[in-house]
C-alpha cells in the first residue's frame, strides 16, 4: 500500500495514527463518504438485497478470506494466513462465483439459507490507508475496517464472526457519493478452526 504523502508546507494538519494521509477537509469528507458506503452495503446484505449488493462489487473483484493458522512467534508475516492465489482458503473468488452464491440463495431451496438467516453486519474502525491519486479526486482508496457479523439461524443457532477487512474501493465516476465499487476485499476472520458449521453469509 502506498499512501499519498501530502506536502506539509501546504499547512494542512499533520497526519496522525497509522495513516500518513494529511487530515484535510477532503480527507474527512472522503472518510465519511466511505463509512456511508459501508453502512449502505451492510443494509443491502442485512435487508437481503443480494442482487443489489452484487451491483456494488467491481466486475474484476477479488474476494478473499484466508484460513488463519497457529504459527510460531516471528512467522506470522509469512505463515499465519493462507495466501491469495495459492492453495485452499475459505474464499478466493471472483464475481462469477459470488454471483452463483447469490443465485443459489435466490433459488429458495438452498437449505443452509432456507429459511433465510437473520444477519447483522456491523462495521467500525474505518481507516483510509491510501488514496490514489489524492483525497480531492479519489479514484481508488485502500480502506481497513473491522466487522462484527451476527447470524441467527432458524431458532437456536447463533454465530458471531469478528475480524478485519482490507478493501480497495474504486470510484466509478468522479467522487459522487455511493458510486463506490469494491474492487478488492481481504477478510481476516479471527478464528483458526472455523467455529461455525457454514459460511453462507457475505462479509
Amino acid at each position: 500500500m502506498s499512501a499519498i504523502v501530502q506536502d506539509k508546507e501546504k499547512g494542512a494538519m499533520a497526519p496522525v495514527a497509522n495513516s500518513s494521509i494529511e487530515r484535510s477537509a477532503a480527507y474527512y469528507r472522503l472518510k465519511a463518504d466511505i463509512e456511508d458506503f459501508y453502512y449502505h452495503e451492510a443494509d443491502l446484505l442485512d435487508d437481503r438485497r443480494f442482487r443489489d449488493w452484487l451491483d456494488i462489487l467491481a466486475e474484476d473483484i477479488s474476494y478473499f478470506m484466508p484460513i488463519r493458522r497457529n504459527v510460531k512467534f516471528g512467522q506470522h508475516a509469512t505463515r499465519e494466513n493462507t495466501r491469495i492465489g495459492e492453495g485452499i482458503s475459505w474464499f478466493d473468488e471472483d464475481k462469477w462465483t459470488l454471483t452463483k452464491r447469490v443465485e443459489q440463495i435466490l433459488t429458495g431451496v438452498h437449505y443452509a439459507e432456507e429459511p433465510l438467516s437473520r444477519i447483522s453486519h456491523m462495521v467500525s474502525n474505518v481507516q483510509i490507508k491510501a488514496v490514489r491519486p489524492n483525497p480531492e479526486q479519489p479514484a481508488e482508496v485502500d480502506v481497513i475496517s473491522r466487522f462484527l457479523v451476527y447470524q441467527n439461524r432458524v431458532e437456536y443457532e447463533t454465530y458471531t464472526f469478528v475480524g478485519r477487512r482490507n478493501d480497495t474501493l474504486r470510484a466509478t465516476q468522479g467522487t459522487t457519493q455511493a458510486n463506490w465499487k469494491v474492487a478488492k476485499r481481504e477478510i481476516l476472520l479471527e478464528q483458526n478452526i472455523l467455529l461455525a458449521k457454514n459460511l453462507t453469509m457475505f462479509f
Binding site: 483458526n192 467455529l195 461455525a196 458449521k197
Partner: peptide
C-alpha cells in the same frame, strides 16, 4: 493443497 477445519 490445503485443509479445511470446522466444527458442526
Amino acid at each position: 493443497i490445503g485443509v479445511h477445519k470446522w466444527v458442526f
